[in-house]
Amino acid sequence: MTITVPSLPATGIAPERFKQIFRNHPAGVVVVTVDAGRGPAGFTATSLTSLSLEPPLVSFGIGAGASSWPHVERATGAVVNFLGADQEELARTFATSGIDRFAAPTRWRRLPGGDPVLDGVTGWLRIDIEQIVPAGDHRVVIGRVQESWSAGARSPLLFHDGGYHSL
C-alpha cells in the first residue's frame, strides 16, 4: 500500500507566517561580539543554541546581509554575552544598524586574547569559530567554547512576541 503525503510548495511557508509562528516562541537574548582586525563589531541574537557537550559547541545564526556579517565571516573567534533582564537597552543598541554600538554608554573591554566582551553581562562564552554553514539568507556559526564566565544567578533577558521580557 502506498500512502501519498501532500507536499509543501517548493518555497515553504510565507515569511510573514514564519515570523508569526516564532513570535510565540520565547528566546534568550545574547550579544555576539567579534574583532577580525578592523575594530569591534557585534549584534543582538536570539538564535543561540547549545549544540554539543563533548566537545562543547554552540551555534548561532546571523543574516548574510547584516552589517556585522563581514566581521563575523573574517573572525576566528567570538564572545557570546548573555544579557540580564535589566539590559534591554544594550540589546536594542546592538540590534540597531548604522551606529557605533561600542560607543558610550556601552561599557566593554578586551579579554587577554583581544576579544571584545561587554561589561555587566550575566555571563559570557569565548568561542573559536569552527564552521560557518550557509542556511538560506542566514549563516549558522558553530563555535567551540574555550572559556566561560558567569556572574551567578540573575534573571535573563528574553525576547517574545516582538518585545523584551524577564522571568
Rank of each mutant, 00 (worst) to 15 (best):
S52Y: 04
V58P: 01
A95S: 13
I99C: 08
A95F: 06
P134C: 05
G61Y: 04
D115V: 12
V133Y: 10
V121S: 07
A36S: 15
A14H: 15
T106L: 10
A10K: 15
A14G: 11
R110S: 15
S97Y: 06
A27Q: 14
A64R: 13
A85Q: 11
L57K: 10
N81T: 14
T33N: 05
E73I: 03
P134R: 05
H138C: 07
I129V: 01
A151K: 11
T96W: 08
T33L: 08
V29H: 01
W69F: 14
G113M: 11
V29F: 06
H160I: 07
L158M: 14
G84A: 11
W149E: 06
G28R: 10
P105V: 11
P105K: 14
V34W: 02
D137P: 02
L48T: 00
I127L: 08
E89N: 14
V34A: 06
L57Q: 08
I127F: 03
I13Q: 10
D35C: 09
S7Q: 13
E73F: 11
S52L: 09
V72N: 01
I129N: 00
I129H: 09
H25Q: 12
V29D: 01
V145I: 14
R144T: 12
G163F: 06
W124M: 01
T96P: 02
V72I: 08
T93R: 15
H138K: 06
A41T: 06
L125W: 09
F22H: 05
P9E: 13
V140K: 09
I142L: 11
